[in-house]
Nucleic acid binder design. Structure first.
Lengths: 107, 107
DNA sequence: GCAACACTGAAGCATTTGCTTAACTATTGC
DNA sequence: GCAATAGTTAAGCAAATGCTTCAGTGTTGC
């Protein structure tokens, strides 16, 4: 589910925005309410909610509402999926370089 | 240089587009010319060049022109920088969970 | 020389994005 | 009950994005 291209698309798109990355950064230090997430950001609460909805749709963040406060937290599995995509490509490239090195050493 | 927020911004933005990720994926298997990159994509060569310029500006891809063909290859350092950003946030979150677990076990 | 090739750059255009404001709903504290 | 709090939703708008086409430039092969 987390590795399907559509979800990956949403994740990288979510991470593309500086404000959203700042929100993820904040959440990496612990759960926060919407207002707490908004506090360091120079934009309306409404804008923050829109960013948050994207983050949630991407799977990077999970939220639950208790009373009137919505508490947000990171879902590390989604972060791991994004990490994994990048890592695989980098390793693929580096393994290729290694093989090339071996080949040149042999000849 | 690779870790400054502006560069990180460009990298994640570059990775946000499916066509550009497909190009990175292709390049992870080895260098390619612009036309080779374009071949599997359902868009004009001109569009591919525009994507490529973004990838290059982000630092993810390096290119060099020999004669009339521009050969592209991945720069693994940029991939590593993006990977690193995600990894740090995930680890930060997971360490927090661990400490919480320890605390609960103690009490 | 000159045609085919491999791009490159600019202009234009529809769509998407990242906000804003304003009006609204649902909780909470007193 | 009712004001303050916490968030939600919709409408609107300027700017950015992802294309397109078309008209180039420089390179290569014959």
């Amino acid at each position: 589910m987390l590795h399907d291209p559509a979800q990956l698309d949403l994740m990288f798109q979510a991470l593309a925005d500086p404000a959203r990355r700042q929100m993820v950064d904040r959440l990496s230090r612990g759960p926060a309410s919407v207002s707490q997430l908004a506090e360091p950001l120079a934009m309306s609460l409404s804008a923050v909610v829109q960013h948050l909805n994207l983050l949630e749709a991407s799977g990077l963040v999970r939220t639950q509402k208790v009373g009137r406060v919505r508490t947000c937290q990171i879902d590390p599995r989604a972060l791991r999926a994004a990490e994994h995509w990048i890592n695989e490509r980098r390793l693929s490239w580096e393994r290729r370089l290694d093989r090339l090195g071996d080949f040149l050493a042999e000849s």
